[in-house]
């Protein structure tokens, strides 16, 4: 099966003011052949999910370093469900304690990555999850 490129919306929710990490990851996803819609800084959960709906994105990637990962990921996930894109992958990164990762995972949030993770690992993970969803839709 010839897969069309994966589309990912990458954003930094909240007020924390630097997006180096998000840009590094976005570039790595482009290197991996993905089409990245980069929203940049100071996004609200509403603006992120609205963009993902219009773009029909396969995945949303959030970068959160402010410590406010719980409310951001929870709100985005809830909005994705109400807007009808709950089947799409929500992933991201930051400095997120294992306990919080487990809580978010139970809500349906995908794997979350930290400073030690190689960006290519993130690309591999997104590919695996998106291809699995597409295969399920075809059947």
């Amino acid at each position: 099966m010839n897969e069309h490129p994966i589309k990912v919306v990458v954003a930094k929710p909240g007020l924390d003011g630097h997006d180096r990490g998000a840009k590094v990851v976005a570039r790595a996803l482009v290197e991996a052949g993905m089409e990245v819609v980069y929203l940049g800084l100071r996004q609200t959960p509403e603006s992120i999910v609205a963009a993902a709906v219009e773009e029909d994105a396969d995945a949303i990637g959030l970068s959160v370093l402010s410590g406010a990962h719980m409310p951001h990921f929870t709100k985005v996930k809830a909005l994705m469900d109400t807007e009808g894109i709950g089947d799409r992958l929500l992933t991201g990164g930051g400095i997120i304690p294992t306990k919080d990762q487990e809580t978010l995972s139970a809500l349906g949030v995908g794997r979350l990555f930290g400073p030690g993770d190689d960006p290519s690992t993130i690309a591999e993970y997104i590919k695996e999850r998106v291809y699995a969803r597409r295969a399920a839709e075809r059947n």
Partner: peptide
């Protein structure tokens, strides 16, 4: 990219003013 097929699409960054505006539908294409 002619090499990887990937694309970095940044147009939405400049279109923040349109967020939440139901009169407008915006789509990025590689």
């Amino acid at each position: 990219s002619p090499f990887t097929g990937g694309a970095f699409m940044g147009d939405r960054i400049r279109m923040d003013a349109l967020v939440g505006d139901d009169r407008v539908f915006m789509r990025s294409l590689a």
